[in-house]
């Protein structure tokens, strides 16, 4: 087994203890919910699209440190972005949590999620909030579940 400190890096612990942009967003004009049926984790993402950019974004939900920290980091990284930019960032995150490969230019603090790839059972935790955000961006009212989406 890999060392757990790879998974629970200080950035993760910090975001788990003090999640950023947590709570409902009163001005949201998009919302989407994600469920992970196998473990009961949940995440709701609220965002406000100003034109084609994410003006503000927040999340609510419950889950392990990995899922909470990943959602918190997500809000910081998606604010101000367009939908295609968000897709590109998520593609990098997906690569990161499944292979551990860090794209230094684009990922910044998200690199803290690199340890997840050594714990395949936790990949779904790390991607739950992102699926909800991408669905919210699509204006998709349906519930995202990690069972029906590719990680």
């Amino acid at each position: 087994m890999q060392d757990l400190t790879d998974l629970y890096q200080s950035v993760i612990l910090d975001h788990n203890r003090r999640p950023r942009n947590r709570g409902k967003l009163p001005t949201a004009n998009r919302v989407a919910h994600g469920d992970n049926p196998s473990c009961g984790d949940q995440c709701t993402v609220y965002l406000r699209l100003d034109g084609d950019r994410i003006g503000d974004i927040s999340f609510e939900g419950s889950g392990c440190a990995i899922s909470q920290a990943s959602a918190s980091l997500m809000t910081l990284n998606l604010k101000g972005k367009t939908a295609p930019e968000a897709e590109t960032i998520y593609a990098g995150v997906h690569e990161l949590v499944t292979t551990g490969k860090v794209d230094e230019d684009n990922l910044s603090d998200l690199a803290a999620l690199a340890g997840v790839h050594q714990f395949p059972a936790r990949i779904k935790c790390a991607t739950l909030g992102w699926h909800a955000a991408l669905n919210a961006l699509k204006g998709d009212p349906i519930t995202a579940t990690t069972e029906t989406h590719k990680d």
Binding site: M1, L4, L7, Y8, R17, C39, D41, S62, G63, C64, A65, I66, Q68, F119, R122, C125
Partner: peptide
Amino acid sequence: ANVHAHDVVTFADE
């Protein structure tokens, strides 16, 4: 209160 069950299980497994 401050540690989720999945994190507990992962650490206990270690």
